[in-house]
Design a protein around this nucleic acid. Structure first.
Length: 603
RNA sequence: GCCCCUGUAGCUCAACGGAUAGAGCAUCGGACUUCUAAUCCGGUGGUUGUGGGUUCGAUUCCCGCCAGGGGCGCCA
């Protein structure tokens, strides 16, 4: 996919031959990186520095390493036969830099982008299947800004692995049962039975508020009176009864559960649809329950798990012991309660088995917040002990949580920033900006654009910081529209589209010989890096790389846009620049697509 | 006690072990008769928490320490 990859490989092996003739066996491969100075046109390698270090280590050179590297680089440069398309090879400060011939290189890059279009950057098909599990909010809670980070990150990752060539399955795993769910049902039944607001979003939100209300009533207060305590304990007993009824499959309670559960799932559907995030398969805790229990029996039978139920304990796995670790690392995992009911871990083991055996997943990625790190480490280690080779390719993409300036959000406490509120505010603010900047856009057109830009900005905020970093929510940072933000990238796409609209198509003429502006060279350089960035982001599960790339590409285009007139350029140059604009527009569109951010035509 | 993450400009963050650590925000000063100024140009701003180590080369890898956050047998 990389331009000139065969030629670059050939130069690389010539360099290695040069090393071999001098008895240098390290480095064993040549790695190329962009030369970090604008105006330079090509790639550089630090291989000679490594080679010189090798000579020094083996007492085959007495020169200081940088000096030896420079000498070696000069010698090897003189020995290389450059393939067609390369202008020169030179030794600079111990680095070996190769430069492309401008004309054929530019033609190759532009031709690749324009002929492949939406497929520019797509990786060769891989044999492995990746499953990305995300979208795992609990039901009976409303979708908040933390869940937003989860699904935005998960979807961007899925798009990246899919585009990089992996068969990709998007999975959702909402928590549909547990104490929190039962509390909410209790609150509904006791205080709001029979009520039901219209509209999926409104109903989901309302249900979330009932959960908060119920939690508050069930929360002990330090200064509560005797009467208050009695009331609360009465409530607690009712909740326990309700859970027991659910567990025994009580028809009425199951019906209530199904109905309220659906409200939350409808809300989730509505949100995912608005965000353009498709899900291939929904897993539910309830469906993994039974299989989980048989797995526990199997793990006991195979001596991996220990059954402490005879002495009143649970079923456990002493992971550190089984792995022969002296320091406590993975600790003891409880995989079944003493009363025989299943736990989160029980179900995740079952789910992993389903993923491996029914969906033939080779790489299983879990996009779940960082607080569950130990849970996943334990799960993966148990899968490993159990004998699943896929355990080595299970990956917990642990992202840090979204907090408020005053601390953690909590459904229980009700200090939640809801996705819907932020999205509406984003659309409102963007709509006002459009009214000012582009009065030509009106009605449905303005609404659609406000939606694309508003949601795009929100998504970019989540994608442009590393998953290991906390995001402190504030309205101003969450709705940042200036500088390194989605609207900047979208704006570059709009500018490029606008130029193309004013012409009758993009000519694919041969490149005339003209002095290219540094802004043109830098821009084409960024365009050419796209396939490599796709690959890197997918392999390392880092949507951040693509978010950064998209910004730098947009920035390079903005520089070009300022420095290089297109429509008013003289005929030959105009055609080339139109092709550059078209290639940029396409690459920006592809980048935004991978981030799940819309690329508007006007704004 | 043990495990994980974070610490880079006033603030929020980037930076495949490489060449001169970059952006945005904020701040100060400029640019719209121009392919849309949601933009651009310039200035200010750094002992990369700290002390060692490995390396030709460390923000990046290893060890210690400091500070903050998260987690640790029957919640999810």
């Amino acid at each position: 996919m990389r331009i000139y990859s065969a030629e670059i490989d050939s130069i690389g092996s010539q360099i290695l031959d040069g090393f071999a003739r001098r008895g240098i066996t390290d480095p064993a491969a040549v790695e190329w990186a962009p030369i970090p100075f604008s105006g330079q046109w090509g790639l550089g390698t630090s291989g000679c520095l490594k080679a010189a270090a090798f000579l020094a280590r083996n007492k085959k050179s007495t020169l200081p390493v940088p000096q030896q590297a420079q000498q070696l680089a000069e010698q090897i440069a003189s020995e290389i036969t450059l393939p067609a398309g390369f202008a020169r090879i030179e030794a600079i400060r111990g680095y070996l830099n190769i430069s492309f011939e401008t004309k054929p290189y530019v033609e190759k890059v532009l031709e690749a982008v324009l002929s492949l279009g939406p497929d520019y950057g797509r990786g060769t098909p891989k044999t492995e299947t990746v499953m990305v599990e995300h979208a795992n909010p609990n039901t009976h809670h409303s979708f908040h800004i933390g869940h937003f980070r989860n699904v935005v990150l998960g979807e961007a990752l899925a798009r990246l692995t899919e585009f990089a060539g992996y068969k990709t399955i998007r999975a959702a795993y909402p928590g549909d049962i547990g104490l929190g769910v039962v509390k909410c049902m209790w609150g509904y039944q006791k205080f709001h039975a029979g009520k039901e607001p219209a509209g999926a979003m409104e109903r989901g939100r309302w249900l979330g508020q009932i959960y908060t209300e119920a939690s508050t009533l069930l929360e002990p207060h330090p200064d509560e009176t005797e009467a208050q305590r009695a009331t609360r304990e009465g409530y607690e007993a009712e909740v326990r009864d309700l859970y027991r009824l659910w567990d025994t499959g009580d028809k009425k309670i199951r019906e209530l559960w199904e109905r309220t559960r659906k409200w939350s799932l409808d809300e989730l559907d509505a949100v995912l649809q608005e965000l353009n995030i498709p899900i291939d398969v929904f897993f539910f805790e309830s469906q993994a329950d039974e299989l989980g229990k048989t797995i526990v029996d199997e793990l006991i039978a195979r001596g991996i798990a220990e059954d402490e139920r005879p002495t009143g304990g649970p079923v456990i796995v002493r992971i550190d012991d089984k792995l022969g670790l002296k320091k406590e690392t993975y600790r003891v995992a409880v995989i079944l309660r003493s009363d025989g009911t299943s736990l989160y871990l029980t179900k995740d083991l079952a789910l992993a088995k389903i993923k491996f055996e029914q969906y033939h997943v080779d790489r299983s990625v879990y996009v779940v917040d960082v607080r569950q790190s130990l849970h996943f480490q334990q799960a993966f280690q148990i899968l490993n002990l159990w004998g699943f080779p896929q355990a080595a390719k299970c990956f917990h993409l642990a992202y840090e949580i979204v907090t408020l300036p005053e601390g953690t959000m909590s459904s229980r406490k009700g200090n939640i920033v809801y996705y819907l509120d932020v999205a509406e505010e984003a659309r409102r603010r963007i709509s006002a900006i459009i009214a000012k900047k582009n009065p030509n856009l009106t009605g449905a057109e303005r609404e659609a654009t406000a939606n694309q830009v508003g949601l795009g900005a929100m998504k970019y905020v989540m994608l442009a910081v590393d998953n290991t970093k906390q995001i402190v929510f504030s309205w101003d940072t969450a709705l940042s529209f200036d500088g390194q933000a989605a609207p900047y990238i979208q704006y570059a796409h709009v500018r490029a589209s606008s130029i193309l609209e004013k012409t009758g198509g993009v000519p694919r003429a041969a490149l005339p010989a003209y002095y290219m502006h540094p802004a043109e060279i830098t821009l084409i350089d960024w365009i050419s890096r796209f396939p490599g960035e796709v690959d890197r982001a997918a392999e390392e599960y880092k949507p951040l790389y693509m978010a950064n790339y998209a910004y730098f590409l947009a920035k390079a285009f903005t520089d070009f846009y300022r420095e290089c007139p297109v429509l008013n350029a003289e005929a030959g140059i105009r055609d080339v620049r139109l092709a550059i604009v078209a290639a940029t527009r396409q690459t920006l569109a592809n980048s935004l697509q991978l981030l799940g951010i819309a690329a508007p035509q006007a704004m």
